[in-house]
Design a binder for these strands. Structure first.
Lengths: 199, 199
DNA sequence: ACAAATATGGACTAAATGGTCCGTAATTCG
DNA sequence: CGAATTACGGACCATTTAGTCCATATTTGT
């Protein structure tokens, strides 16, 4: 079992034990790495980029995260968890129509023009990396599920395809954003969701 | 002016002139390169990948195409031209509903699981490369235009946002495909286009 | 204080990268 | 044939890449 894995799983219960303590926070380092991957994509991100952003020496990096790939998968999973939680919150706390709020949130993700990291990564890596594809599939399915719950809490399965169309539409607008479409055109596009769900 | 550029612009009128003739076809080489970029993305494609696929020596490569970036842009533009032409053909020659046919074609591009090269590239490069962003924007706008023409030949401008929603939806399904969604789920998703455009 | 254990900095490595250069081959024109 | 011109093969180059290693620093338990 690697250092990183042990550290991660026993984080709370583990007695400090002997040895020099870390002087960085693993969670913060992970989030710093996430940001870089998010901005630049996997291939275009170098070890130097990462260690600089995480303020880690190479040895600490490898001791804690094993490899660029392993770090990336952890970052991606972290992002997925967070994003889905966020989306649920948006749906629950929305002022007006929760579907509108979700569409807005999806097409206008926290990352700004960086788009949705998961979609970026699926596009870049899923065809050659089944692990990433798996994370992506799960994420997309979860988004659909949230949409379906909101569309028809009584019988979400019945509206599953419609929910999928909504998330597809939102995901599509991410590409428009990246190409530099002005915000108002994207807003117009999203209004079409109301034609799908007249309410 | 570079060799490649002169060759491209004078291709037809230029007298053979003295000098050793090329023993490769520039257009075929370009298409071979396109395929590699399409499969692997820009960063992940190496010069070795390219020269091997194009059956070119490095010197011929640079003489004809100047740089990896320049080749890439030419390949991308080529792809855009072709794809749009193809989409128009699909719309015109469709048996049933031309919108359905276009949605099918977009979500199920020639490249198979590679997805739509333009969307791939916009996702990977547009945020850092205005040239690519420009090509992407034009391409997406043209797709909208074709949809709008089909939706309402009398007054295409009036249905522009709806046309954009349709292409967004189709583009969104590309992400689902890459994540490995089974084909029938994607088909279900596209059927929702009929809810947007009941006909 | 000392042994055991863990972390850190940063030099180092082998491989791969995009790009250049040069000697040679093939062609046309005089 | 020979000069001019263009193309080709492939050795070469500086830089960057992900990853390793080791001497040193910092901690705990005895």
């Amino acid at each position: 079992m690697s250092n990183a894995a042990r550290q991660a799983s026993d984080q709370k219960t583990r007695t400090p034990g002997p040895g020099r303590p870390r002087n960085f926070d693993e969670a913060s380092a992970l989030e710093a790495a996430l940001l870089v991957f998010w901005q630049k994509g996997y291939e275009a991100t170098s070890l130097d980029d990462l260690t600089k952003a995480m303020s880690l020496s190479r040895s600490s990096f490898y001791a804690a995260f094993d490899s660029k790939q392993a770090l990336f998968r952890r970052a991606l999973s972290h992002y997925s968890r967070n994003g889905l939680q966020n989306l649920k919150n948006v749906a629950v706390t929305a002022d007006g129509n929760p579907v509108d709020a979700m569409m807005q949130a999806l097409s206008n993700p926290q990352g700004g023009v960086k788009g949705c990291m998961l979609i970026n990564c699926v596009t870049e890596l899923a065809p050659h990396d089944e692990g990433v594809a798996e994370i992506g599939r799960r994420h997309l399915e979860k988004i659909e599920e949230i949409f379906a719950e909101v569309l028809d809490p009584e019988n979400p399965d019945a509206v599953r395809a419609r929910a999928r169309a909504l998330s597809s539409l939102a995901i599509g607008t991410l590409a428009l954003r990246k190409a530099g479409y002005p915000a108002d055109r994207i807003a117009d596009t999203l209004k079409q969701a109301k034609v799908i769900l007249p309410d």
